[in-house]
Amino acid sequence: MSGIALSRLAQERKAWRKDHPFGFVAVPTKNPDGTMNLMNWECAIPGKKGTPWEGGLFKLRMLFKDDYPSSPPKCKFEPPLFHPNVYPSGTVCLSILEEDKDWRPAITIKQILLGIQELLNEPNIQDPAQAEAYTIYCQNRVEYEKRVRAQAKKFAPS
């Protein structure tokens, strides 16, 4: 494992614990031996107030490669969400998460999670990743928002 990646992720964890947006979660997972795995984080993004996503808490896994922060983490909703920019596998399609697009090593975990929260309610229809959600979003916004509200209710924190 890269010392650069681990040191950056340790800084990220410290900064997150000191200050993070209300309702968001970002925690490194534990290895079988109980030690912390900084390369694999369990996160959760709350649906934004005043949107059909409100009330939901959407679980996301963030996986970092050894060359982080040169390369972005892979962000994957578990379980996958109904959304035009979420692949059926759950992987998020967002330009700041793509090395050859808008990724920059200075982007923080907090910025990534806030960017994904923004994307939930403002899909990028130029870059669809899920045919069904994309089609319904474009053709029947009322039905799309109904499905999103049902999903938010399903993923409401207990």
Score class of each variant (00 low, 15 high):
Thr51Ala: 02
Ala44Asn: 08
Leu81Met: 11
Gly56Cys: 00
His20Asp: 05
Arg141Ser: 08
Glu143Gln: 11
Pro79Phe: 12
Lys18Ala: 05
Glu12Asn: 07
Asp33Thr: 04
Gln111Glu: 12
Arg13Gly: 00
Phe82Val: 03
Arg61Tyr: 09
Asn85Leu: 00
Phe24Asn: 05
Pro105Phe: 01
Thr108Gly: 10
Val86Pro: 02
Pro128Asn: 04
Val27Tyr: 10
Lys49Ile: 10
Arg13Ile: 03
Lys65His: 12
Pro123Ile: 05
Glu118Gln: 09
Trp53Cys: 03
Ala44Trp: 09
Leu57Ala: 05
Pro72Lys: 05
Met39Arg: 08
Phe77Glu: 03
Lys30Val: 10
Glu42His: 07
Thr35Asn: 03
Arg104Leu: 03
Asn40Met: 12
Asn124His: 09
Glu54His: 08
Phe155Gly: 07
Lys110Thr: 05
Glu118Val: 12
Ala129Cys: 04
Asn37Tyr: 14
Ala106Thr: 13
Gly23Ala: 07
Pro80Lys: 10
Tyr134Arg: 00
Pro88Val: 08
Pro73Thr: 10
Asp67Val: 09
Phe22Met: 01
Asn124Val: 03
Gln111Asn: 13
Leu97Pro: 11
Lys18Gln: 09
Ser158Ala: 14
Pro80Gln: 09
Lys59Leu: 11
Arg17Ser: 07
Phe82Tyr: 06
Leu38Lys: 00
Ala26Ile: 07
Leu57Asp: 05
Pro73Asn: 02
Pro46Glu: 07
Asp67Gln: 10
Tyr134His: 05
Glu54Phe: 13
Lys76Thr: 15
Tyr134Gly: 05
Thr135Ala: 12
Pro105Asp: 01
Leu114Thr: 12
Ser89Ile: 13
Asp102Gln: 00
Leu57Thr: 07
Gln117Asn: 10
Thr51Met: 02
Ala106Phe: 01
Cys138Pro: 00
Ala152Leu: 00
Val142Ala: 11
Gly55Pro: 10
Leu60Met: 12
Ser2Arg: 04
Pro72Gln: 09
Lys153Tyr: 05
Arg8Ser: 02
Pro84Arg: 03
Gly55Gln: 11
Gly56Glu: 02
Gln126Met: 11
Pro128Glu: 03
Glu145Ala: 12
Glu42Ile: 03
Pro46Arg: 07
Phe64Gln: 06
Phe77Lys: 02
Lys110Val: 10
Leu97Gln: 05
Pro72Phe: 00
Phe77Asp: 00
Pro105Val: 08
Trp53Lys: 01
Leu94Trp: 05
Phe77Pro: 02
Val86Tyr: 05
Tyr87Lys: 03
Gly90Thr: 04
Ser2Gln: 15
Val92Asp: 07
Ser2Pro: 10
Glu78Pro: 03
Glu143Leu: 10
Leu9Glu: 07
Pro80Asp: 12
Phe82Glu: 05
Thr29Pro: 04
Asp66Tyr: 08
Ala26Thr: 00
Glu122Pro: 02
Ser89His: 15
His83Ser: 02
Pro84Gly: 03
Asn31Phe: 09
Glu12Thr: 01
Glu122Cys: 13
Trp53Asp: 04
Lys49Leu: 06
Ser89Met: 15
Ile45Lys: 01
Asp66Leu: 12
Ile107Leu: 14
Met39Ala: 07
Arg147Ser: 13
Ala5Phe: 09
Lys154Glu: 11
Lys153His: 08
Ser2Met: 04
Thr135Pro: 05
Gly3Leu: 10
Ile45Phe: 07
Lys49Asn: 13
Arg104Lys: 11
Ala150Glu: 10
Lys74Ser: 15
Met36Val: 06
Ser70His: 07
Gln11Gly: 08
Glu145Gly: 06
Ser7Ala: 01
Ala150Lys: 13
Lys18Tyr: 03
Ser71Asn: 10
Phe22Ile: 01
Asn85Ala: 08
Tyr144Val: 01
Ala26Arg: 03
Thr29Phe: 15
Trp16Leu: 05
Gln126Glu: 13
Pro79Glu: 14
Leu114Cys: 13
Ile125Asn: 08
Phe58Trp: 04
Leu119Arg: 01
Ala44Gly: 14
Arg104Glu: 06
Pro73Ile: 08
Lys154Gln: 13
Phe155Ile: 09
Ser158Leu: 12
Asp102Ala: 13
Cys93His: 04
Leu81Tyr: 02
Glu99Tyr: 14
Tyr87Ile: 08
Lys14His: 05
Ala5His: 15
Asp66Ala: 11
Phe24Ile: 06
Asn121Ala: 11
Arg61Asn: 14
Val25Arg: 13
Cys138Asp: 09
Gln139Ser: 07
Ala106Asn: 02
Trp103His: 06
Lys153Ala: 15
Gln130Ala: 12
Pro28Asn: 06
Ile107Ala: 13
Asp102Trp: 10
Ala131Pro: 10
Glu143Asp: 11
Arg13Met: 02
Thr29Gln: 07
Gln151Val: 02
Leu119Ser: 06
Gln11Cys: 14
Pro69Gln: 01
Pro73Gln: 02
Ser71Trp: 14
Pro157Leu: 08
Gln151Ile: 09
Lys154Leu: 12
Ala15Tyr: 15
Pro28Ser: 05
Ala150Ile: 14
Ile109Met: 11
Arg147Lys: 13
Ile96Leu: 11
Ala150Val: 11
Phe82Arg: 00
Arg13Ala: 03
Glu145Val: 13
Asn37Glu: 14
Tyr87Pro: 00
Ser89Tyr: 15
